[in-house]
Every structure is written in C-alpha cells, then in structure tokens.
Computed example of a mutant assay.
Amino acid sequence: MRTEDLIRALAHDSASRSESVARRLVTRALVGVLAALCVFALFLTPRPDLSVVIVTPRVAFKFLITLALVGAAGALTLRAMRPEARSSLWSVLIPVLALLAVGVAAELISSPPAAWRPLLIGSNALACLALVPLLSLLPLGSILAALRYGAPSQPRFAGTIAGLLAGGIGSALYALHCPDDSPLFVAAWYGLSITVISVLGAALGARWLRW
C-alpha cells in the first residue's frame, strides 16, 4: 500500500470513529433526557399557566439560559471525548454567565430595591436545590457512559462538562414546573444546583474516565 493510501485509510477510520463517538454521545444524552422526563412525570407536573407565561420575558429567559448551557456544554462534551482535546471550562461558562448577567442587571434595574430579596429567595429554593440534581442524575449517568466510549485525556474536566450538560438538562426540565421566574432566582438557585451536579460529575469523571 502506498503511503498516500495509508494516510487516507487512517483519516477515514478516524473520521468514522469520531462520527460513531459523537452519535453515541447524542444517543445516550437523548436516553438520559427521556429517563429524566420519566422522573419528572413521576414527581412533578408542568405549572398550570405554562402555556400562557412561556412567552413572557422572564420565563422565556429562564429557558434561554438553561438551553444555552445545554448547547454550549454539549458541544464541549463532544470535544472532550477526544484524547487530543484541549478546551477551557470558560468557553462554556463565559457566554452563559454573560447572558445571565444581562438578565440579572435588567431585573435589578426594572425592580425596586425592596423587591430584590423576595425575587432572589422566591418560594421554591429548597425544591430547586433538590429537584434539579434529581432530574440531572440519569442524564449525567448516560453522558458519562458515552464518554467512556471515547478517550478523554482530562477525565475530571470531562466529568465536569458532563455535569454541566446534565445540569442544563435537569434545570430546563425543572423550569417547566418552577413558578419562580426571576433571573435573580435562576442565577442563585439554578446556578447552585447545577454546580452541585457539576462537582459530582467531576468526581465521577476522575474515577470512571481514567485510562
């Protein structure tokens, strides 16, 4: 076999494997979403006014933030599956945090200072801290299982990104139920809940994704 043919064959094999790895991640992530939907159906219901309020700025912003996190973390998770990948956590966090900061600033400007604390605390902070991680656990397990099929060279980092992706999925599902719509609430309690699942992902990744 000529050298050029060998190079083409290796490139084709590498591309095929990359497509297979990406396909497996997407499939496992979808399985995790379906499993989380089952958990949601067992323990929660969509808020009664969802069809009305979903187009309001606060509620739309809540879904924008959570789905932006899913998109950014999902793209980085695909990269983290490859051994040569070198990415920064900030490539996910900076765009999402910047978007969140805009929403928080708009809330502070449009609300009187006396309302800031009630908007921050809301009425479901403890439920958020419990239910977002609960809804994120099965997606996290599915995503970590897919990452094991790849070859991440930074297992703790890959686990952290998997946690962010799972946390974004769990928080988007919880947003269907949660009546607290203030960006202040989202920043504090959704943010803390996603941090919890990301720390868990980092710990599990360091243990399960080593090779």
Rank of each mutant, 00 (worst) to 15 (best):
L6R: 01
A9C: 04
D13S: 15
S14T: 11
E19V: 12
E19G: 06
E19P: 03
V21E: 15
A22T: 13
R24A: 12
L25I: 13
V26H: 09
V26Q: 07
A29W: 08
L30Q: 10
V33W: 03
V33K: 03
V33R: 02
A36N: 08
A36D: 09
V39C: 10
V39T: 12
V39H: 07
F40W: 05
A41E: 06
L42P: 06
L42C: 13
F43A: 14
L44I: 07
P46D: 06
P48G: 14
D49H: 08
D49S: 12
L50C: 02
V52P: 02
V55R: 14
K62E: 02
K62V: 03
K62H: 05
L64C: 07
I65Y: 00
T66N: 09
V70H: 01
G71S: 07
A72L: 13
A73D: 01
T77N: 09
A80C: 15
A80N: 10
E84W: 07
S87Q: 08
S88C: 04
W90G: 05
W90I: 04
S91R: 09
L93I: 00
V96S: 03
A98D: 00
A101E: 02
A101K: 00
V102T: 06
V104W: 03
A105R: 02
A105W: 01
A106C: 11
E107W: 12
E107V: 02
S110C: 05
P113N: 07
A115W: 01
R117A: 14
R117Y: 11
L120S: 04
G122D: 08
N124P: 02
A125W: 09
A125M: 10
L137N: 09
L137T: 12
P139R: 09
G141I: 03
G141E: 09
G141H: 05
I143C: 00
I143T: 04
L144W: 03
L147A: 15
Y149T: 14
P152I: 11
S153Q: 13
S153L: 08
Q154R: 13
Q154Y: 07
P155E: 11
P155F: 11
R156C: 09
F157I: 04
G159P: 12
G159E: 08
I161D: 01
A162N: 06
A166H: 03
A166N: 03
G167H: 06
G168V: 00
I169N: 06
Y174G: 08
L176E: 03
L184N: 05
F185T: 04
A188Q: 06
W189P: 02
Y190V: 02
G191T: 03
I194Y: 02
T195F: 13
V196L: 15
V196E: 09
I197K: 09
S198D: 01
V199M: 11
G201P: 05
G201L: 11
G201R: 08
L204K: 09
L204V: 15
A206E: 13
R207G: 10
W208H: 11
W211R: 12
W211M: 12
